[in-house]
Every structure is written in structure tokens, then in C-alpha cells.
């Protein structure tokens, strides 16, 4: 596959276990809209099993960044390379579209803030979960349904709702269904855009707890965009703070939140409402 490249200095790569190398590597990524900056010169790595939070207020460029690294949006400059299942690093923007889309529906997941953007509202919950399985060639109705049913259970949706359409579901259930739909192919990397946004606090807590469990059980790597620092603290190992398109501070999540260095991070942290 000529579209895949190995990262420079790959001579000793075979000797290094895949878990000892980044799963995703972002380098010099910028997205410019005419005179407006989406995000500028962002570089970071995500390691297997790591949860990275990207925080910042609306307009800080965090969603633009997420869309670029998940290949939903072409960056102006910069590269995103991903460690494919065979261990090689693939340049996401030099892959063929077929390869990229295959990646997106097998080894990656994308959880949208609004479940309507990530679900098929007019097909049943079971088919929503089963779609990815069918897309990768599963052709046994019984086993597709069994797997869908198991996943509904894992996201705490009653098995007897399997034939209901998501429009009959509450916001929290829809979001959990969207998560199941993404995880059914056992992706290694999941992108999440404000997954708890717009949910009631109690529903949010349940979802966060569920996500936390799934992430650790499945050893998922997650890149989560959120403006909620409490969500970032609960879920993430590492954090990037963005302002005006730039990463202004990054590090271990509790270090950044307990000992913020940049003026803007201090402002963000001091703005959290205490309960």
C-alpha cells in the first residue's frame, strides 16, 4: 500500500512494541479560513489507551482541531499519522478516500455532541448498532442482532428497546446508543465532541461513568473536546488548553488543573463554579 508511509527513522521500529509508540501523531497542524484562524501549529501525540482532553471556550478552535485530526476536515498544513492495525504508521491525509473511510468506520469512532448527527433516526436501535458490522461484511442476521443486543446492554439500554427507533429515546439514551454504535467494531481510537453537552446533570454523570468504564475496559484511546473542565478531569489523563487556535498549555490533567501556569488556564480554572 503505497499510500501508507513509515515515520522517519523507522529502522528499529519492528523491535519496538506497538504500545510503545504513539497511536496518533499530529504535527504542525493548522487550519486557516481565509483571514480567520481555525487552529494553528498544533502538535501532539496520543498513546494507546490514553485519554486526551482538548479544552477551551467556544471559538478557541478545539472543534476545528478535532475535525481535522479525525480527517473530517482537510487542514491547511500539517500531518496526522496513525498507527494502523498492522503496526505501520499511515499518513491520514495521504490515504485513499476508501482507506480513510474504512478506518473511520472500523478502527475509529466519532461521538457527536448531538446524537442526531451520529445516528440514523429512522432505523431501529439494533440496526444503528449493527450497521458497522454489516459494513465490514457480517451477513448473519442472528449474530449481528446478538452483538447489537449485547452492546445495548453494555450502554445500559434495555434489550427490549432493540427494535425501537432512536427518536423514541431520551437524550441520554440516544447518546449511549451513539456510543454503542461506534464501539461495536472495537475501534482503538474514539473522537468525542462534547459528548455530555446538552444533557441534564444527572444524565451527564451516568454517561461519564459509563464512558469511564468503557474506556478502561476496552483500553480505548480517546480524544475528547469539552469546555467542561470537570469532564476533562474525570475522563482524561492529559489535557490541551486552547485559546485563539493555539495550544497554550498542556500536560497531565490534574497538574494543569491544580497548578495552571498560563494566564488563560488560570482564568478558566478559577471560573469553575463550586458546588
Amino acid at each position: 500500500m503505497s499510500d501508507e508511509i513509515l515515520i522517519e527513522g523507522d529502522a528499529g521500529f519492528a523491535a519496538v512494541a506497538a504500545s510503545e509508540r504513539p497511536l496518533l501523531s499530529v504535527s504542525g497542524l493548522s487550519k486557516i479560513y481565509g483571514a480567520r484562524i481555525g487552529c494553528i501549529d498544533v502538535s501532539f501525540d496520543v498513546w494507546p489507551g490514553e485519554v486526551l482532553a482538548i479544552v477551551g471556550e467556544s471559538g478557541s478552535g478545539k472543534t476545528t482541531l478535532l475535525n481535522c485530526i479525525s480527517s473530517r476536515l482537510a487542514p491547511t498544513t500539517g500531518t496526522v499519522s496513525y498507527q494502523m492495525r498492522d503496526g505501520r504508521m499511515g499518513d491520514v491525509f495521504r490515504m485513499s478516500e476508501a482507506e480513510r473511510r474504512h478506518l473511520m468506520r472500523t478502527d475509529w469512532g466519532f461521538v457527536h455532541q448531538n446524537p442526531i448527527d451520529g445516528l440514523r433516526m429512522s432505523v431501529s436501535a439494533g440496526a444503528n448498532v449493527g450497521e458497522r458490522l454489516m459494513a465490514v461484511g457480517q451477513r448473519h442476521y442472528g449474530s449481528i442482532r446478538a452483538e447489537a443486543s449485547e452492546w445495548l446492554g453494555r450502554v445500559e439500554i434495555d434489550a427490549d428497546r432493540i427494535d425501537d427507533q432512536p427518536r423514541a429515546f431520551s437524550g441520554g439514551m440516544r447518546q449511549r446508543l451513539q456510543i454503542a454504535r461506534n464501539l461495536v467494531t472495537e475501534p482503538r481510537l474514539v473522537f468525542m465532541d462534547e459528548p455530555t453537552g446538552g444533557l441534564d446533570v444527572s444524565v451527564q454523570a451516568r454517561l461519564l461513568d459509563l464512558l469511564r468504564g468503557l474506556v478502561s475496559d476496552l483500553g480505548l484511546s480517546v480524544i475528547i473536546v469539552t469546555h467542561d473542565l470537570a469532564v476533562a478531569r474525570l475522563l482524561s489523563d492529559r489535557i490541551l488548553v486552547m485559546k485563539e487556535g493555539r495550544v497554550i498549555e498542556s500536560g497531565l490533567t490534574d497538574r494543569v488543573l491544580d497548578d495552571p501556569r498560563a494566564p488563560y488556564t488560570q482564568l478558566l480554572v478559577s471560573s469553575i463554579l463550586q458546588v
Binding site: A98, V123, G126, A127, M134, A135, Y141, D163
Partner: peptide, 18 residues
């Protein structure tokens, strides 16, 4: 173009489910 035909089976799945 990309031979992504999972959706066709989604439709058949819905038939059987219903």
C-alpha cells in the same frame, strides 16, 4: 464508488426485525 454497501443490509435487517 467505494463499495460501501452496509446500508443495504441495514434495510434488510430492519425488515427482518419488524
Amino acid at each position: 464508488a467505494l463499495e460501501e454497501y452496509g446500508l443495504m443490509h441495514v434495510k434488510l435487517y430492519e425488515d427482518i426485525a419488524r
